[in-house]
Design a protein around this nucleic acid. Structure first.
Length: 285
DNA sequence: CATCGACCCTGCGGGC
DNA sequence: TGCCCGCAGGGTCGAT
């Protein structure tokens, strides 16, 4: 489950459902689901108490009472579900974490196995305490540690297209393919616009658009085209109804009526309005 | 160093 | 009905 709003929906669920509980066991059903790991996951988690649920960008983690943390990245299709004990296993169940009480167990379900769990130490980075492996990830635009001037300076050094930059988690985290397209549409910027040609006010406008669209999506429980993207209780959000361009090829632009175009981009897609977001003369892919 | 394409997987829908 | 292709909210890695 992908971008910032969807991951935040999961974090909020975990904060409610696992904070303060003590882990009883962890069962790994697929080797790819746990990365960079030495030893038995269950041995390291048994008896640990979960303090809370934190997030930066698309990464979330559960700080533990021994100072380490259980980190998760959902990849393209990962889900974290809270289900009553005894519930039949999901087809793509990868890791099961049980607790020393009668409450629900936590399950990591992931069809495509691009996501993973990891036990990691915490460290200070960009004004926060975060897992060591993601110390290089920039703050996301919804956290206090995000510094617009720092982002703007870093962006101007880049020689690439604006969408590539938005998707680079070391510049700004949490933005993925959907919200990049939606933010660019709101700011009337083409995805291939060269970063070095952007003015400070335009960058500010783009950031405001990114914040707005992700905040609105969060208010609707995130974006779900199908049952792959759900909260810890398996429920879908409904922000997909509010998308202006993403996935709307040939549909009229909500602003000017021009049919939305779809371009191939990094083995994926970019959606934009040909009128509101004209292709730049010296764009960068 | 910075940038970019290939690759990692499973499943689904569309065209033939 | 199949089969094949393209496509899907992700990051990592090696080649340049």
């Amino acid at each position: 489950m992908p971008e910032l709003p969807e991951v935040e929906v999961v974090r909020r669920g975990l904060d409610v459902w696992v904070s303060g509980r003590t882990i009883e066991s962890a069962e790994v059903l697929h080797t790819r689901a746990v990365r960079r790991h030495e030893g038995v996951l269950s041995d390291q988690l048994k008896g640990r108490r979960v303090e809370s649920a934190d997030r930066r960008g698309k990464y979330l983690w559960l700080p533990l009472d021994d100072g380490a943390a259980l980190m998760a990245h959902l990849g393209m299709s990962g889900q974290v579900l809270m289900v009553p004990k005894g519930t039949p296993d999901e087809k793509h169940l990868r890791v099961r974490v049980t607790f020393a009480d009668d409450g629900p167990e936590m399950r990591f379900v992931d069809q495509r196995t691009f996501g993973h769990l990891m036990i990691t130490q915490l460290t200070a980075a960009w004004g926060r305490t975060v897992p060591l492996p993601i110390a290089h990830i920039a703050p996301d635009p919804l956290e206090d540690a995000f510094d617009e001037d720092v982002f703007t300076a870093a962006l101007k050094k880049r020689k690439t297209g604006i969408k590539r930059a938005l998707l680079d988690q070391s510049l700004i985290s949490g933005v993925g393919n959907i919200y990049a397209d939606e933010a660019l549409w709101r700011a009337k910027l083409h995805w291939a616009r060269a970063t070095e040609t952007l003015t400070k006010p335009k960058i500010s406008e783009l950031l405001a658009a990114a914040r707005a669209v992700m905040t609105e999506a969060l208010g609707q429980g995130g974006t779900s085209f199908d049952s792959l993207y759900v909260n810890v209780n398996g429920e879908s959000g409904y922000f997909d109804r509010s998308l202006n361009v993403y996935g709307r090829r040939d549909e009229p632009c909500p602003r000017c009526g021009t049919p939305i175009r779809r371009d191939a981009f990094m083995n994926r897609s970019s959606y934009s309005c040909p009128t509101c977001q004209p292709r730049p003369r010296n764009g960068r892919w």
